[in-house]
Design a protein around this nucleic acid. Structure first.
Lengths: 173, 173
DNA sequence: CGTGAAACATTAGCGGC
DNA sequence: GCCGCTAATGTTTCACG
């Protein structure tokens, strides 16, 4: 995906859309003092260029019964390969040699509780953001998925007590 | 904001909208085998009930020159009050007694680099998600904002090497 | 919940700067 | 190249059965 030229008008469109992704093209055009057609052409170009990755509705996790948010630091085994039968995700054939990192990443994709996962610098290898109903659910996830995983050797969890700030918007202005 | 009754149809609407927030009401109605008007009524009800917090466009931070993502753990001073002149955010009058936590939270809201902040369990008090252009920018933010803040006594940073998974969607099905 | 009609929004083609 | 017009098509919205 080639880099894409962007001028000040494109940036203003992006700033508007990342705050309210459902504004009509007309409304946006009006706010940036442009007529609807060039405005829409710019938006389509930004979508096709991958600058706009998508549009989503943000939901209130509390109201949906997902009241617990945890950040889990994970350290992985670095030597050897995962044991047979360990690879829950996709069912690789037993002769395929995979690393612990590959095995863990594949598992992460299959766990709905994990809403984000980054490979990190520092003592721990991965940081997981985990959304669950309550402690019982978290405990189950820990025992049955994370601690049960053959590549995981250590985890350290912190729980969110309160969200002070949370935005999907990126600071572009 | 009172709790709101939700049936299986509401949940399906939410699942669709948190994956694609720009689908037309007609398209959604079709997918859940309902006509447009009751579908729209449900969506409006979920919006007004606060289950749908908003709609946003998700942008590619890399393509916007924000290539560095850091998680910063912060520990705060617990005794005493912030020094005069310390409260950059809002300019409280000098006689107003505020806690270090209040002072820090107010500052966080004013820092555009901080895209998320949670109060956390564990040794450290807060976890910040920080988006910046590069190390130079991060260094500047650290020196001039975080470490300079009168309520901050300790920070521990980890950088994201790679994003394995990242979704704003909450696991509702 | 569904129907239908009015108001509104999207989008492709074309001419002009 | 990028803007803005127009006109056809598609979508939202609301009163009513």
């Amino acid at each position: 995906m080639a880099d894409i030229e962007m001028d000040a008008i494109d940036r203003r469109i992006l700033a508007i859309l990342q705050e309210n992704g459902r504004l009509s093209n007309q409304e946006i055009a009006e706010r940036i003092s442009l007529s609807p057609s060039p405005c829409l052409r710019r938006i389509r170009r930004l979508e096709e260029g991958g600058v706009i990755c998508g549009y989503v509705a943000l939901l209130d996790a509390q109201k949906l019964g997902l009241g617990l948010l945890a950040y889990v630091n994970v350290r992985l085994e670095k030597r050897g390969v995962p044991l047979a039968g360990a690879n829950q995700a996709g069912g690789n054939p037993p002769w395929a040699r995979i690393t612990h990192a590959e095995c863990f990443r594949a598992s992460v994709q299959t766990w709905p509780e994990v809403v984000a996962c980054h490979a990190m610098t520092g003592e721990m290898d991965y940081l997981l953001r985990v959304r669950v109903e309550d402690m019982a659910h978290f405990s189950r996830f820990m025992q049955e998925q994370l601690l049960h995983h053959p590549s995981v050797i250590d985890v350290k969890t912190s729980f969110s007590l309160e969200t002070i700030k949370e935005t999907t918007a990126v600071p572009i202005l």
